[in-house]
Structure formats: structure tokens, C-alpha cells
Design a binder for these strands. Sequence first.
DNA 1: CGGAATCTTGAACGATTTCAACGGTAGTGG
DNA 2: CCACTACCGTTGAAATCGTTCAAGATTCCG
Lengths: 232, 232
Amino acid sequence: MPVKSLPVSAMELRSFPLLKPLREEMLTELASTARALEFAGNEVVFRAGEPAAALYGVLSGSVVLYRSSADGREQVVHDTGAGRTIAEAAVFQYGSFPVHARAGTRGARLAQVEGARFLAILDRDPAAMHSVLAALCRRLHELVDRVEILSLPDAGQRLARFLLRLPAEGRAGSFRVRLPVAKKDLAAQLAMTPETLSRVLKRWREQAWAVVLDDEIELLDAAALEQIAAES
Amino acid sequence: MPVKSLPVSAMELRSFPLLKPLREEMLTELASTARALEFAGNEVVFRAGEPAAALYGVLSGSVVLYRSSADGREQVVHDTGAGRTIAEAAVFQYGSFPVHARAGTRGARLAQVEGARFLAILDRDPAAMHSVLAALCRRLHELVDRVEILSLPDAGQRLARFLLRLPAEGRAGSFRVRLPVAKKDLAAQLAMTPETLSRVLKRWREQAWAVVLDDEIELLDAAALEQIAAES
DNA sequence: CGGAATCTTGAACGATTTCAACGGTAGTGG
DNA sequence: CCACTACCGTTGAAATCGTTCAAGATTCCG
């Protein structure tokens, strides 16, 4: 059992995409019965087969989801970090946990949210339910896009695709975008090193396709980039 | 306006992840007011600002979502193919389409599903709503996993991670998995060429970490693979 | 004014892709 | 039943691309 059990704030709950669309009063209600649990390293959070009475959000640390085979070997199904929620699907279907969960080796802080309470809130307010649905759909699209981008073998292609669907301003043929994150984080998001990102931009600059000023990039030859992005 | 408007079968609707969890009778009801629309190349499906009265599933061909800037330049936001649904988020929030949509250059066949009808079905049956939510959550997890895998720079790492969370059977230290798809498709899913996949498996074979028989792979040294997968 | 962090650039190495060829298998049509 | 073809999977060799390691430039912050 967890070392400590403390109250959770509505704000903390809002850090989870699943709960984010809820209105303030709903989050407060949810928070009233939610608990922040501190688990020691490798401590069990729940076991497969137990009724899924609550869903868990990872506040810090990590949680390992695993199956245990007959011989006691542990097969890791999942290894989730902060910001992820766990067991929502089981909760929505009134089911049991399909896998075991334990804290990572360095422990974890989890928000435990009563499943029934969450469902009740959604069931009594269709608009909130629709918001949650809409949010999930948007996030799904976003992820599908990221998978598509990450599947491209060429670093330039990945960057071009990413930039071309950023909100842009400018005229035909040439336009300007603002990077939403630091270059090093962008690089990570596009599965390349910062060095490679820098070099791709340099190459584009040399070919007069782009001008870079800090986090602003002026795409001079949209046609060229679109061709790169479309290749394959 | 579309060239043809034909009825859609419940079965066709089930091919979309969003609708898949619905019970047969619900799909039939949905299908009764749904239409399969055939769009010619580049034909407009809907315009930004119009009320989102329906959501669309791509049956074949592709749909391009785009914004148009003041000068008439067209910025592509999205390029979706068969199996994807469009505009669900807007429908769930009773909003307007945020972008324009047109068929790809080679046309498209779309299932047009009445948004109000879909919402009505879900609102009157909480269990169905919960199934849809659960399905979306599961798919979300799946995609987050894929993004994580695709972000790994090393081909061996990607394959190891993938294999280790496949349903497995076997004893401690050694177990067997069955590939869910052909090797060439697996390679594509892991963002590598079939050749590279073949070579990674060969290397593992030479190190006595694995034995491959068609689509069955015996992992002899789970510890070694786990270490590879965990690195970085 | 340090000092840290980000970004850039260079060079060398390593990995993966590419190109090419071959064996095996399944499906097709004679 | 047997070519014959087409596709998948494998292997080899070469080339390319990205990473790694190292260093310098710049900015921001204490």
C-alpha cells in the first residue's frame, strides 16, 4: 500500500488530456474524492483481475504495466511517465484491470481518480462528455500525424512536413512560421539530433529555400519544400 | 456537389475506429441516414465556417484538409486516406468546420454520417458512449506507444521494443512470439527497410539471441533484448 | 562578469539505405 | 502437372545519411 495519501488539486488533474476538457466545477468535484498516492519503487499499484474502480494519472515518476506469466516471469506491456493516464479504458467498460501495475524502480506519485464518479459526471452532462470525446479525437489526429511524420526516413522530409502544417503567415510562394518549441525539442520531436536539424536548415539556407532568425523561419520556396515533403 | 450518393452498409461504417464499438442495431440506424458520396478530383467536400452537421469517413481515395490564406494560397493541414474519419471533433462540439476539405486529385468516396444522429445514439445509451470512449483511449495508448518506438534512433531497439510487448508464450529467459503482419509491413511500421529488418534478425541469430521460422520468432535471450530496448 | 544552455559548425565514424542479385513460394494459365 | 510469373525475404557491396564527438559562438541568467 502507498506510503502517503494526500489530496489532489483540480489543477493537477487538468494536466491529464482526458480530464482537461472538464469544467472547473467538475474537476473540483472529481478532486474531492481523488487522492495523490505515493508509491515506493516497484510497489504494486493494482493487480490484473481486480475490478477497475479507479483510473490513475501519473503525476511524477513512472508506472510499469506488466503481465506475469506462469513461471513468474514479468512481461512489460507498457512503461508510462508523467502526464499519462492509466486504466481509463477498463474504467469506461466497467471491467477489471487487464494487467498488473507497479511503480517504476524510483517510485511514483499517482493521482487516483474514482472511476464511478468520473463516469457519473460525464453521464449527467452530455456537453462535457462531448468535449471529452472531441478532445480525444483531436489528440488522436495529432498522434496519427506524428506517426506519419516519424515514419519518413529522411530528416529533411520530416522537417518539411512539420513546418508546412504550422500556422503560417505570408504570401504565395513564400511565408513565415514560428517554431512552437526550442530547436532542440523540435529535433527530439522529429526524431533527429539538434545537429542534424541545424544542418538541414543550413542546407535550405544555402539553396535559398529558407531564412532562419531564431525561432522564426521564412520559407522562401514553398514549392520546393512541398515537393520534398511529398516525396516517397 | 458529389457525383453520386449511394446508401452505406453498417459493415462499411464499422471500418472506422470511432464507430466500431457500436452495436449492430446502432450502426444500422446510423447507416439508414448515412450516404456514400463520390467526389471527383479536387471537388470541395465542405468549407470552413459551415456548421459541422456531419462527420465523414474516407472509404477510398483521399481527402485534403486545407486553409486558404488571404491571397488564395492553399495551406494543406492534413491529407487523410482510407479508414480515417474527418471532422468528428467539430461535430462533437456542435461547432463549424475549422478548415476546408476537398477530395484528393484522384477523387474520393466518403461516408457521410449525420452528426446529430450519432450523438443522439450515444446520448441515449451510456454503455455505447463508454465503449466509444474506451476504444478511443485504447487507440490513443497504441499510438503513443508507436510514437515512442519510432522516436528511437536504432533499428534494433525499435524491433526489440516491438517484439517485447507482443503477446508471448514461453518460459523464463526464452519465449516465442508470432509476427502479426508480414515482415515487409512490419518493417514499414518500424520505419526501416525490409533489408534492415532481415539483417537485424540475422545479427540476433548469429548472437544466439533469436531463432526465426517464418513469422514465428523464438527469443532465446530475453534479457539481452530487454537491455537493447531499454538503452538510451 | 562568470556560467550554463542553446545553437552552430566541422570531421570521422557508423548505421541504414540503396542497388542488385538470388532462392523460395504461391498463384496462374497452359 | 508443369512452366511461368510475381512477390517476399535474404544476402552482398557500395554509397549515403545521420550520429557522435569536439569545439566555438551566442544568448540568457544568476
